[in-house]
């Protein structure tokens, strides 16, 4: 079987699916002051698994929107205006859907794959671990 390290270099997805990989990448992002992008990515995954009939789900959708999207945070800056408008309108109309953050998550993931993930694989945090 692949070693964890071999999996980490395979894709961002495999890195984030591994506990040690995800935590090490998080430490790296904290240092780079962009840990919000990763927390947002995990929040989207967590949200997708929530029960739409649970009143908590709307509150979580609002919390995600408030924390990462409506302000001028690093996540918000990396999202397309249309994506943000779509989420804002869904929340306003209280039309909550499991996939309402999927587009935003995909956009954030692409940016992470192109930037942070590549930087991580050459960072001293990663190399020291290896």
């Amino acid at each position: 079987p692949d070693s964890p390290l071999a999996r980490w270099t395979k894709s961002l997805h495999s890195l984030l699916g591994d506990q040690d990989g995800a935590y090490l990448f998080r430490t790296f992002l904290e240092r780079e002051k962009c840990v919000d992008t990763l927390d947002f990515w995990f929040a989207c995954n967590g949200f997708r698994q929530m029960d739409l009939k649970d009143t908590k789900t709307l509150r979580v959708a609002k919390a995600i929107y408030k924390r990462y999207i409506e302000n001028n945070s690093i996540v918000s800056k990396q999202l397309k205006p249309a994506t943000k408008t779509y989420i804002r309108d869904s929340i306003k109309k209280q039309q909550i859907d499991s996939i309402m953050f999927d587009q935003a998550q995909t956009e954030i993931q692409s940016v992470m794959e192109e930037n942070a993930y590549q930087m991580f694989l050459t960072s001293d945090i990663y190399l020291e671990y290896v």
């Binding site: 591994d18 506990q19 990989g21 929040a43 989207c44 967590g46 908590k56 919390a63």
Partner: peptide
């Protein structure tokens, strides 16, 4: 009632990979 921050943290933690 949980605060918004708690709900958000709970949501993030639920998606983090667990030790196998």
């Amino acid at each position: 009632i949980d605060s918004e921050d708690d709900l958000l943290q709970e949501c993030i933690s639920s998606a983090m990979p667990k030790k196998k």
